[in-house]
Design a binder for these strands. Structure first.
Lengths: 128, 128
DNA sequence: CATAAAGTAGTAATGATTACTATTATGAAT
DNA sequence: ATTCATAATAGTAATCATTACTACTTTATG
């Protein structure tokens, strides 16, 4: 599916630096916008290709927020509540012990995404 | 975002029955295919609209598998491993106590999706 | 330097989902 | 039962993130 990087190109370095410099999750399109400032002719396909290669190699991490992929400089875990009524996504302060899960399952893990499905407090209070 | 059903239509009943009768998760497109056998002129948009309304009302559940939405007759929880190298999705026999999570967070929950991020055994053994 | 393979730019295609619009069906009030 | 406002539908077009394709360029290596 994803290919492993074999050559270290200028475009790959630009993409990597942008993800590393970012303080918050960034989308492929945002990386594209920033990359074009340094390298105006870089193409969106190249940005996607390099982001995916960097994920494969473990240099950056990725997770889906809503419908779009977001990229992070480091392994990343999060918990969200997805309200089935309003469809909104809420960040939830809940932590899973990745170490414990890795132990129980015998898997090598970098991070997790926990999507809780239910009804948010606002929608619940409206008695819908 | 999603609208709440106010009228009980034939199309809604057809969609609901198909999801209820299914033994396994079903996509909107599959529901559309089955619905057309009973109601040849039903439109895909109507299938989507009714599926979403049924989710909002809590009569059925939904979760994303890869890039597509899947629908289930009952609240549904699952754990998957997403391999960052090959991109494949593996079902993992790990259960989270939803009751415990609900207690800790104070939320009303129907189910969860836990996406573990790491490297699958096959890719790990290839030493990539 | 030569050369094969990997990467890139630019553009077109994909595919699930949503939006739009004219028409039809529904349910509450008369 | 008939009327009537409005919710829902069919059919089609549009979105939009992501991937695929192709001719050209760059890279690593003998």
């Amino acid at each position: 599916m994803n290919s492993y990087p074999t050559r270290w190109t200028k475009q790959m370095k630009v993409v990597l630096d942008i993800v590393y410099d970012g303080k918050s999750p960034i989308t492929a399109d945002q990386v594209y916008g920033l990359a074009r400032k340094q390298m105006p002719r870089i193409s969106l396909g190249t940005v996607y290709r390099n982001l995916n290669r960097l994920v494969v190699s473990g240099l950056i991490s990725e997770s889906k927020v809503g419908t779009v992929q977001c990229f992070y400089p480091h392994p990343y875990s999060n918990t969200h509540l997805e309200c089935r009524v309003c469809g909104r996504l809420y960040s939830v302060p809940f932590d899973l012990s990745l170490h414990q899960v890795a132990k129980e399952t015998g898997l090598t893990l970098d991070g997790y995404e926990l999507r809780l499905k239910g009804v948010c407090k606002e929608c619940a209070s409206r008695c819908i």
